[in-house]
Amino acid sequence: MSALFFAVLSEAKPWLTKLEAKPISHSGKFRIFQKDNHYIIISGTGKLSMALAVSEFAHTLSKPERNQMKVWNLGIAGSGRSEHKLGDFFWINKISDVSSSKDFYPDRILNSNFKKETNLKTFDRPVTKEKQRDRFISLNSEELENLNLVDMEGSGFFEAASLYFPLENIAVGKLVSDHLEGKFCQAEDVETMMAKTMEGLFEEWTRPLPWVNADSIETVDWPLVESFIQNLRLTETMRHDLKKSVRFFRLRHPNSQLPFPEESDKINLKSKTDLKNYFDQWRETLHV
Results as ranks from 00 to 15, higher is better:
G156T: 05
F157L: 04
F157K: 07
F157A: 02
F158N: 00
F158P: 06
E159T: 07
E159R: 05
E159P: 01
A160T: 01
A161K: 03
S162N: 13
S162P: 09
S162A: 12
L163P: 00
L163N: 14
Y164K: 05
Y164W: 13
F165H: 04
F165N: 05
P166D: 12
P166F: 09
L167R: 12
L167Q: 12
E168N: 13
E168A: 09
I170V: 09
I170M: 02
A171G: 04
A171R: 00
A171H: 04
V172G: 02
V172F: 01
V172N: 07
G173L: 08
G173T: 06
K174A: 02
L175I: 04
L175D: 02
L175E: 06
L175W: 10
V176F: 04
S177L: 09
D178Q: 12
D178R: 03
D178Y: 09
H179P: 12
L180Y: 08
L180I: 12
L180C: 13
E181M: 12
E181D: 14
G182I: 10
G182P: 14
G182A: 08
F184N: 13
C185P: 10
C185H: 10
C185Q: 15
Q186L: 10
E188V: 02
D189E: 14
D189L: 05
D189H: 08
D189R: 06
D189T: 03
D189C: 04
D189P: 08
E191I: 03
E191H: 03
E191D: 04
E191Q: 04
E191M: 00
T192A: 11
T192L: 08
M194A: 02
A195M: 04
K196E: 09
T197D: 00
T197C: 09
M198W: 01
M198D: 09
M198Q: 06
E199W: 01
E199A: 11
L201N: 07
L201D: 06
F202G: 08
F202R: 03
F202Y: 10
E203H: 10
E203M: 10
E203C: 04
E204S: 03
E204P: 05
E204Y: 07
W205Y: 01
T206A: 02
T206F: 07
R207H: 13
P208M: 05
P208Y: 08
L209H: 13
P210R: 05
P210N: 07
W211E: 15
W211K: 11
V212R: 11
V212A: 14
N213H: 15
N213Q: 15
N213M: 07
D215W: 13
D215M: 12
D215I: 10
S216H: 09
S216E: 15
S216C: 12
I217W: 08
E218R: 14
